[in-house]
Design a protein around this nucleic acid. Structure first.
Lengths: 155, 155
DNA sequence: TATTTAGTTCTCTAATTGCAGAACCAAAAA
DNA sequence: TTTTTGGTTCTGCAATTAGAGAACTAAATA
């Protein structure tokens, strides 16, 4: 198998994406996640990833296992080949989006907890908070319809 | 002015919120942001915050300035009183939400950049990516309508 | 003018992170 | 049986973060 080559544009894009992913991921996992989106070949081995990103074995191993545990990546195997081929799980974006939207529920619950213990004396603030809580609830309730609308639109 | 008192429930809630805010903020700013939501009195001085959260002056000063620069908090002054009174800016939640939704645009642009440089050979992957990009665009375009719907509903 | 107040800034340190490099290991191949 | 492959785990360190504490400062007060 010829060794993995990346052009300058791809390298630059990996940096850019890597930086973006770093809110949420550590540098090494972030770059790996970026690489697996940008690389011409989509299924890369441990050593290909290691070499092209100049990572140590330990960093590579830990980062890959971390990304696997987050379900950000997955791997396939090939018959008669011991290596694992790691690939992005971005096709799961729909699931990811759905869990991301669960954040609304979480913030909603937290803010309700805050509101429930507030004294009556801060009426204006409480009302503002309540409005926010209602909005979060509204968003949460609207998400399924949005997804449906999207599915319709695709057809 | 009688010194700020928090009951156990409030202290626990500050911890909980603080933890939640720590994805995005450092510990000290996170707790201050939490305190300013939970405290009975909503406008707190430097020293009140400092004392109730057991922070040093430097930590308090830096955290407050950081939160001010993020516009997460603001302060008011009172005539004949040198102190500043810091308060949560959560009433700005609408603006915050709107900027949060700009994330869709950002991811959209990044992913388009990825797609634009991908080889034709990975057709399935590219199509999946394109679908994701379209979804992001769809979400972005739907947000204003959602806000409008919410405004209608409030009446 | 001297002191107090309300912070800010500087210096230093403890704790944590992020990763390299080496040692290690189990399964497969030779 | 020995060696190679494809990793994993351990040890240690350099860099960064988070915040304490003390020195400092500018405005207000006495």
């Amino acid at each position: 198998m010829d060794s993995l080559k990346l052009n300058d544009k791809q390298l630059a894009l990996i940096e850019k994406l890597g930086l973006f992913f770093e809110s949420g991921l550590q540098p090494a996992p972030a770059r790996i996640a970026a690489l697996l989106l940008v690389s011409d070949r989509l299924e890369l081995t441990f050593d290909e990833i290691r070499e092209v990103l100049n990572l140590s074995k330990s960093a590579t191993s830990n980062a890959l296992n971390f990304l696997l545990s987050m379900q950000r990546i997955e791997y396939i195997t090939k018959p008669g080949d011991r290596k694992r081929y790691f690939k992005s799980n971005i096709s799961d974006w729909k699931e990811n989006m759905k869990t991301k939207f669960l954040e609304f529920e979480k913030v909603n619950a937290l803010m309700r907890e805050v509101l429930d213990q507030r004294p009556h004396s801060t009426k204006d603030f409480n009302q503002g908070l309540e409005e926010f809580i209602n909005f979060l609830g509204f968003m949460h309730s609207e998400i399924p319809a949005l997804f449906k609308k999207w599915e319709q639109l695709k057809k």
